[in-house]
């Protein structure tokens, strides 16, 4: 743990895609066990901000610190840092040529250098954790969307990360499958995992989130305790957005 007690610290982040100014000055500190929920209209830069945290997108300006280490310093070993930050995507992004177990063990063996047996044991434990002990041999194409997303979560958790990033992980799912994935995330939060969650599920945000950020046009416009922001939005833009999604 570093001196100021943060897991993640963003300082003056700006991101341009060509002429498009997508992130326009973002400062953010996240402390352990926080569940930060990020909401905002489409195109406001939520995904870009999330991907800046593990430097899948390199910010044009500004600094990203993780666990006291500056990730935007090009001398930092990003591969190593990323093993401590799990990320789950809207489109699951499981590896279709590997079965559920091998999807999980790949990085355990190649990056964390676990033995094959240790990796398999850990993979099976994580699959059980997300309720899929009967699907260890299944290939992604043999799983439902909700099951695939739970394998993806198990794949990230198996790395035993210090924090997890979720980018609209239920948006590609049929309504009846959303619950099982949100359930896994809620359990994770109650176990004390530090999380940043981009979502449109306001119920989940209010119940599980410890802090809500409303993003609009590349800046964080409003933040606070989830129930307060949801019930009492101060900014007119926030009011308009919430009126639409609720």
């Amino acid at each position: 743990m570093n001196s100021d007690g943060t897991v993640v610290r963003l300082e003056g982040i700006h991101k341009w895609f060509g002429d498009l100014h997508v992130l326009r000055g973002i400062d953010l500190k996240i402390v352990p066990k926080e569940v930060v929920v990020l909401i905002g209209p489409s195109g406001s830069g939520k995904s870009t901000l999330l991907r800046t945290i593990n430097v899948l997108e390199e910010p044009t300006e500004g600094k990203v610190f993780f666990d006291g280490v500056e990730l935007t310093d090009i001398r930092t070993d990003l591969n190593r840092a990323r093993t401590h930050m799990g990320m789950v995507f809207q489109q699951f992004n499981l590896f279709p040529h590997l079965n559920a177990t091998d999807n999980i063990t790949l990085a355990l063996i190649k990056v964390l250098k676990l033995s094959k047996d240790e990796a398999t044991t850990r993979a099976h434990a994580e699959l059980e954790h997300v309720g899929l002990s009967d699907k260890v041999e299944s290939y992604p194409s043999q799983l439902s969307g909700g099951q695939q997303q739970r394998v993806a979560i198990a794949r990230s958790l198996a790395m035993q990360p210090k924090m997890m990033l979720f980018d609209e992980v239920t948006s590609a799912l049929d309504p009846e499958l959303i619950g099982e994935v949100l359930g896994v995330m809620q359990d994770l939060a109650s176990e004390g995992m530090t999380m940043v969650v981009v979502t449109h599920e306001m119920g989940f945000a209010g119940r599980v989130g410890t802090r809500l950020l409303f993003m609009d046009d590349g800046v964080i416009l409003e933040e606070g305790l989830p129930p307060e922001v949801i019930n009492n939005p101060k900014h007119t833009r926030t009011q308009a957005f919430l009126a639409e999604v609720l």
């Binding site: 990323r82 992004n93 990085a107 964390l112």
Partner: peptide
């Protein structure tokens, strides 16, 4: 291949 494949892989710490 989808871009997501390499992103997921890099996110797991693979070079």
């Amino acid at each position: 291949l989808e871009r997501g494949q390499i992103e997921a892989s890099r996110t797991l710490g693979l070079s």
